[in-house]
């Protein structure tokens, strides 16, 4: 197992492209308002990406790639959750307005 792991390390190139993707996903999630404090997946993403950077520095490229891949999807999920929540809020706001309008219309008639 140790041999295989070593072999894996040796054959894995530096995951530069994956790092770029992960950074992009984190940026996008932040742009829609996902924060580590409010969205658990964002906290996961940031934690994993930090560890991935440490792995990169240690030339442990396979670990770096796997953590960065997970961080990317954690961030994408964080972004999606924030957007879903926003869409729910929008539906709620509209429902409230419609109820108010209906009430006013009922009063007016």
């Amino acid at each position: 197992m140790a041999v295989l792991a070593l072999a894996g390390c040796a054959s894995d190139p530096a995951p530069n492209e994956q790092f770029r993707l992960t950074e992009q996903a984190l940026e996008q999630a932040k742009a829609v308002g996902a924060t580590a404090d409010e969205v658990p997946e964002m906290k996961l993403a940031e934690g994993k990406f930090n560890r991935a950077k440490g792995n990169m520095a240690d030339q442990s490229f396979k670990n770096a790639r796997m953590r960065a891949e997970q961080a990317e999807l954690d961030a994408r999920l964080a972004e999606a959750k924030v957007l879903t929540q926003k869409s729910e809020e929008q539906v709620n706001v509209l429902n409230t307005r419609i109820v108010r309008l209906r009430k006013q219309l009922g009063d007016a008639q």
Partner: peptide, 29 residues
């Protein structure tokens, strides 16, 4: 994660479809 993301995207899109209908209703009212 991909499965979860797929579900979230779906919920979001369904909410948006619903919101579009509600918006028309709101304008009508």
């Amino acid at each position: 994660r991909y499965s979860e993301i797929a579900r979230e995207h779906t919920t979001q899109a369904l909410n948006e479809e619903r919101a579009a209908k509600l918006e028309l209703e709101r304008q009508r009212l």
